[in-house]
Design a protein around this nucleic acid. Structure first.
Length: 475
RNA sequence: GGCCCCUUCGUCUAGCGGUUCAGGAUAUUUGGUUCUCAUCCAAAAGAUCGCGGGUUCGAAUCCCGCAGGGGUCACCA
């Protein structure tokens, strides 16, 4: 049996957004599941659109998400090179085959002339077909004009691994450009040659290629190449409407999510289930589970919307499941700058307390700042509290003084603090909503915080008493 | 305009002729978990399965129309 070989073949024209990475993920999953190979190939045949640094960025994106490839531009492999601009000889060789067999010819028209044909078709509200203007006696191709495929228009029935059985008529087949006047091949030609030479068995690509697939089928025949399996996945749509998710509309770089503190495993699970499921009610998958369960025929045929809320939920789920050391390792760089002066144990303790209320790491400064610096006393916290605002400041002061006295002799373990605070509830006859809120506000000056005893235990006696004193002074 | 694809709760989806007056998740709302926020646990609300015909004893599921959305018709990929 042939080993499964899949590829991800981006053009180095920018960063990778969620829609793009999904194609890579599916290809990677398929290769891993079948114990095959996953190949990275750069399709850099349009020099005008190329963006500096895009290659490194693409590689970093794949590696960050754990989609490691077996062969690629930077690591080589048995079919190197893996960059199209370095494979021009291959394309010329295959092009010559077509010329020799009468299946390719020089395009004798100027770009303006072709454009005129196009305008004509558009004015007549008909699809543009170059072959309607196919020259009778084209000149010998000298490499300075486009080389076109002499197509053989016919109907096609083919099977798409995702879309199912597809059919088109001969009217969609045209004389596509194989090699441009600048000497570089078009995607249409290059990917077919490369996939054949690199022994790719499965092509996974976006919906925009479905319309040109019949042309590829025609080309495979002329080249005598057996076509790989083709899987066309739908686009991921933007959150607001029905349009394709695109960089123009603000689709974020996957690395931006990582920068905001989204975990790679959460991104992978989210992207995989955006248009795929295993048929059960399982909602979140680890990479090994995905590798085991993924299948192309469960990929959705309609485009899914990108819902950041769902990603946020999955990320929170993964964060909660992290062991404290893993959490520390991944999250410590997101702590506020003030945290630098505290030791590892203290910072770990803080992370442990906020772990279950963390959706993504970029929230950490806001959630934890009061653990590292004394925030100024904020009267609004009392003023907006529905119980505390009803009390006179002398009452508040009295309560807070009792609280201070109660914890002053504590060893500041969670258990002892809990005991003392509970005893205080009885002796003062106050409800937790009043007493605990007051102490919590005094010691944190934050609208929200983890549980009171836990927070005090981490803050420690000195800090807790100092903040209570500051609060007392302001009442 | 031609051709092609798609259409189930706001969102992601299960469903592949009967066990479904459509199940799960998320989001929303409410209640509980000694204070806040969150977690967790309950519960509520939320889809005439795009519309209209047919086939069938029976259709979200099969067929045909229509509508809406998307893609494509580049010397871009």
């Amino acid at each position: 049996m042939m080993t499964t070989r899949t590829r991800f073949a981006p053009s180095p024209t920018g960063y990778l957004h969620v829609g793009g990475i999904r194609t890579a993920l599916f290809a990677w999953l398929l290769a891993r599941q079948k114990n095959g190979q996953f190949v990275l190939r750069f399709e850099d045949t349009d020099k005008k659109r190329e963006v500096e640094g895009a290659r490194e960025h693409l590689i970093k994106s794949l590696k960050t998400l754990g989609l490691e490839y077996d062969e690629g531009p930077d690591i080589g492999g048995p079919f190197a090179p893996y960059t199209q601009s370095e494979r021009l000889d291959s394309y010329k060789k295959w092009a010559k085959k077509l010329i020799d067999s009468g299946r390719a010819y020089a395009d004798p028209y100027t770009p303006e002339e072709v454009q005129a044909f196009r305008d004509e078709a558009r004015a007549a509200k008909k699809p543009f077909l170059y072959r309607n203007h196919r020259p009778e006696n084209p000149p010998v191709w000298d490499g300075t004009t486009p080389l076109r495929f002499k197509s053989d228009p016919k109907s096609y029935d083919w099977h798409d691994e995702v879309m199912g059985d597809l059919h088109t008529g001969p009217e969609v087949i045209d004389d596509i450009v194989l090699i441009k006047s600048d000497g570089y091949p078009t995607y249409n030609f290059a990917h077919i040659v490369d996939d054949a030479e690199m022994e790719i068995t499965h092509i996974i690509r976006g919906q925009e290629f479905i319309a040109s697939t019949p042309n590829y089928l025609n080309l495979y025949e002329a080249l005598g190449i057996e076509r790989p399996a083709i899987a066309t996945v739908p686009h991921i749509m933007g959150p607001d409407g029905n349009k394709k998710l695109s960089k123009r509309d603000g689709a974020k770089d996957v690395l931006d999510y990582v920068r905001d503190g989204f975990l790679p495993q959460a991104l992978v699970s989210f992207i995989a289930t955006l248009g795929w499921n295993d048929g059960t009610t399982q909602e979140i998958f680890t990479a090994p589970e995905l590798i085991e369960k993924f299948s192309l025929d469960h990929v959705q045929r309609s485009g899914a919307r990108f819902d950041e809320q769902r990603l946020t939920w999955i990320n929170g789920h993964y964060i909660r499941g992290l062991a404290i050391d893993d959490l520390y390792q991944q999250a410590q760089q997101f702590l506020p700058g003030e945290a630098d002066t505290y030791d590892e144990n203290y910072r770990k303790a803080v992370l442990g307390l906020v772990q279950e209320r963390l959706k993504y790491f970029a929230e950490l400064p806001q959630l934890t700042r009061f653990f590292f610096i004394d925030l100024p006393v904020d009267p609004a916290l009392i003023g907006s509290h529905k119980q505390l605002k009803k009390l006179e400041s002398t009452e508040l002061k009295n309560l807070l003084e009792q609280a201070r006295a109660a914890i002053e002799t504590s060893d500041f373990s969670v258990a002892d603090l809990t005991d003392r605070l509970n005893t205080l509830l009885e002796t003062t006859g106050q409800k937790p909503a009043v007493l605990f809120s007051l102490v919590r506000i005094a010691t944190t000056q934050a609208p929200a915080s983890p549980g009171l005893a836990e927070t005090l235990a981490v803050l420690g006696k000195e800090t807790s008493l100092r903040r209570i004193d500051a609060m007392l002074a302001s009442l």
